[in-house]
């Protein structure tokens, strides 16, 4: 794309008859291309080629009988898609359920992470003793290696030996049976909590950076006019960090919707239906059954959905910023 827009400078359409000699290329004309080339190559290798391979795979009957030799896999047209979208069949119904759970999961995780991140960022906006330490503390979940963090949660959420049940039932002395957290319906709550724990420091980090750029004078001026903190937050902070928020929420949405590591590490190979997030579901659908064509079709459907949501999100927000 970049190359196409850059070319016209070199050769203007030479009109016939005009004797004007072709302008010699300035020395070093190739430098921008050379500098761009690695990025273009890597973009192709890492993003574009796998993307098209995935789309191509989704039209193949790529089961275990053909996996050793992809070239022989017969084309099935849209069969993989029709199976995935047949919500009366077992495969489609499971995909739909996983999709709905993922939607609920995403709304909760992104929403609560944003609220926590915003609250913490606002609380730490003013200078006070120990601010640096608390900031660092808040960022620990984000800095921790993902697997180490989630594995620790997995131990904490065990029924008989886990810290969570020990704290609630033994230390606080609440009666009743200790529940399972990683199987059955509680699995949803467990995966949501762990995902929030992992995500909110990122929201905190971004919002904190956004808040730094708001000048103090604005707050002081509003304080002179008698604005209370909440009014200041609503009328100054929110509008001023709007660009940050726009990107932040989109990125958090995409990450959370595609979250694979949290359920994979938390639940292992056998995920409970309540914690059956869609990336993990697709992985299971293709890896455990060796049906990579079907898995690719589901991935493409997921892509289309995310594209649609992102497109609507961006166009709505951009239009609004025009009007403003």
């Amino acid at each position: 794309m970049t190359a196409a827009t850059a070319t016209p400078t070199s050769n203007k359409p030479a009109t016939p008859g005009a004797k004007k000699p072709r302008r010699p290329r300035p020395s070093g004309w190739w430098l921008p291309y050379a500098l761009l080339a690695p990025a273009v190559v890597f973009e192709l290798v890492i993003h574009v080629i796998p993307m098209f391979t995935g789309i191509w795979m989704s039209f193949l009957k790529l089961t275990k009988a053909f996996i050793a030799n992809w070239g022989k896999a017969p084309v099935t047209g849209i069969k993989n898609y029709s199976v995935a979208l047949d919500f009366n069949g077992a495969v489609g119904a499971a995909l739909l359920q996983s999709f709905l759970i993922t939607c609920a999961f995403t709304v909760l995780v992104v929403g609560i992470s944003w609220i926590l991140g915003m609250a913490a960022a606002v609380a730490l906006q003013k200078e006070f003793w120990g601010r640096g330490f608390i900031r660092t503390l808040f960022l620990v979940p984000y800095a921790l290696p993902m697997y180490a963090g989630i594995i620790a949660w997995k131990f904490m959420l065990q029924k008989d030996t886990g810290a969570v049940n020990h704290f609630i039932f033994d230390n606080l002395g609440i009666g009743g049976d200790k529940p399972f957290w990683l199987i059955g319906n509680n699995a949803f709550a467990a995966v949501v909590v762990v995902a929030i724990w992992r995500l909110w420091p990122f929201a905190f980090l971004m919002l904190m950076a956004g808040l730094q750029s708001i000048p103090h004078d604005v707050y002081e001026a509003s304080a002179v006019d008698g604005a209370k903190p909440f009014r200041q937050w609503r009328s100054i902070t929110l509008p001023m960090v709007r660009p940050v928020n726009m990107v932040l929420i989109l990125v958090m949405f995409l990450w959370t919707f595609n979250d694979f590591n949290t359920p994979f590490v938390l639940f292992g190979n056998a995920q409970p239906p309540a914690g059956d997030l869609i990336s993990f579901h697709i992985y299971n659908a293709s890896f455990l059954t060796w049906n990579f064509g079907s898995g690719a079709a589901m991935s493409v459907l997921l892509l289309l959905f995310l594209l649609l949501v992102s497109g609507i999100y961006l166009s709505v927000l951009n239009r609004r910023s025009h009007r403003a």
């Binding site: 995935g54 595609n258 990336s279 697709i282 898995g295």
Partner: peptide, 15 residues
């Protein structure tokens, strides 16, 4: 975003 989304989706379902 399409590229971003597909790479992450690719991590989930891919090879």
């Amino acid at each position: 975003i399409a590229a971003l989304a597909l790479t992450t989706a690719g991590c989930g379902g891919g090879n």
